Computed example of a mutant assay.
Amino acid sequence: MQEDARFPGVAIHESAYVDEGVAIGAGTKIWHFAHVLGQTVIGENCVLGQNVMAGPRVTIGNGCKIQNNVALYDGVDLEDDVFCGPSCVFTNVNNPRAFLNRKSEFRRTLVKTGASIGANATIVCGHTLGAFCFIAAGAVVTKDVPDFAMMAGVPARRIGWMSHNGAKLGADLVCPESGRRYRETGPDTLEEVIR
């Protein structure tokens, strides 16, 4: 790993490519064979694993961890502290054809603060993944995901709730790790109880 004079405090592996017109926050590490395309903004203290591709026009918040073999295409926005597991997939158009150029049809995908996406999950474009949600490995997300939702299956459906800490919530809706309390405010909505 070496520091690039364009990005003080950022460690970039010698095999990685970072195009012009990119902003990267201090403390970020970009590993082997990664490629960051122009007009991409990466926050502080992020990790882009081996063979990650980000951009163009992608936003990655602070503290994000993007594991090996993930491609973040135009229109994908990650808020702070998002985890993308190895080989998870973000699509960018709903009906691709090799012989048709549909770049004008790319749809935005927003992943909110603290969300976790498991290995080999697929996120179909045009949806929002709620804050602190948890997408199981191999799941295929085809609709918006509520905050704190635990999603699994093909297509993904909510099978429970997860806490800020990433612990599955029981019927009492109390995090077994932190003691934080939650309450359901609707059939697919959960919020923290603020004391």
Rank of each mutant, 00 (worst) to 15 (best):
F7P: 01
F7Q: 00
A11G: 05
A11I: 01
E14C: 03
Y17G: 08
D19P: 04
A23I: 11
A23H: 09
I24F: 00
I24G: 02
G25S: 05
A26N: 04
H35L: 00
L37H: 04
G38V: 11
G43H: 02
E44Q: 12
E44I: 08
G49Y: 01
M53W: 05
A54R: 02
A54T: 04
G55R: 04
P56C: 14
P56K: 09
G63Y: 02
K65E: 06
I66E: 02
L72C: 12
G75Y: 10
V76K: 05
V76A: 07
V76E: 04
L78C: 07
C84H: 07
C88F: 11
T91I: 14
N94V: 15
A98Y: 15
N101P: 15
S104L: 15
S104P: 12
R107M: 15
R107Q: 15
R108A: 15
K112A: 04
A115C: 07
I117T: 11
I117H: 08
N120L: 10
A121R: 08
I123S: 08
C125N: 13
G126E: 03
A131W: 03
C133M: 00
A137I: 12
G138Q: 06
V141A: 06
K143M: 02
V145E: 01
A156P: 12
R157G: 12
R157A: 09
R158V: 09
R158E: 05
I159C: 13
I159P: 11
W161N: 04
W161P: 03
G166I: 08
A167Q: 14
K168T: 09
G170F: 07
D172F: 06
L173Y: 05
E177W: 03
R180F: 12
R180V: 08
Y182S: 03
Y182N: 04
R183H: 07
G186I: 02
L190W: 04
L190E: 01
I194F: 13
